[in-house]
């Protein structure tokens, strides 16, 4: 009797799979991960802070410091503007946007070498945020140009364009 029920269940499943357009070419979708308890994901793999927490959810304190930095920048107090961002980084050390802002300020101060490395750092933290990365590459391009490396600048620009395109 049990065997009969199992046959019905099996036939039903075949039907469902068929309806779903099962193809022998496709990558095996079964069994799922939880059905293979001996397999494990390397625990280093985890969703990044940025993936879990989009940039718009910065704490008010960080937003206030970014605003303060911008006001100082507009009045030409660049070091002071950087200082506000450094305070923000202490609160959110892995916020790629903050690193990018410091990079922008350093470029405005004509410190291309430092701006370049800060933009690279921002890129390292910007997992999945293509727009932010594209801006970083543009910044890197400009810094490379100021450093007298037009070819590297061109490559950086291409990378910036690629990120926007894709």
């Amino acid at each position: 009797m049990d065997r009969f029920y199992k046959l019905v269940l099996f036939t039903g499943l075949i039907g469902l799979v068929g309806c779903a357009g099962f193809s022998v070419d496709s990558y095996p979708s079964l069994p799922a991960k939880h059905e293979a308890p001996s397999a494990q994901s390397y625990p280093g793999k985890q969703p990044s802070v940025e993936q879990r927490m989009p940039a718009s959810t910065e704490p008010l304190a960080v937003i206030a410091l970014m605003d303060a930095s911008e006001i100082k920048r507009r009045s030409g107090h660049f070091e002071s503007a950087v200082s506000s961002l450094e305070r923000a980084i202490k609160i959110q050390p892995r916020n790629a946007g903050l690193w990018q802002r410091i990079a922008e300020l350093r470029l405005e101060q004509y410190k291309p070498r430092l701006a370049l490395d800060l933009a690279r750092k921002s890129n390292t933290l910007a997992s999945g945020n293509r727009a932010l990365k594209s801006r970083n590459w543009k910044l890197i391009a400009e810094a490379q140009r100021l450093l007298g490396k037009p070819e590297a600048a061109l490559k950086a620009e291409e990378e910036a364009a690629r990120l926007v395109r894709e």
Binding site: P28, K33, A36, S38, A39, Q40, S41, Y42, K45
Partner: peptide
């Protein structure tokens, strides 16, 4: 991930 003893590495 279907393989037993499989681990995901970077």
């Amino acid at each position: 991930e279907a393989c037993s003893n499989a681990v995901e590495y970077p």
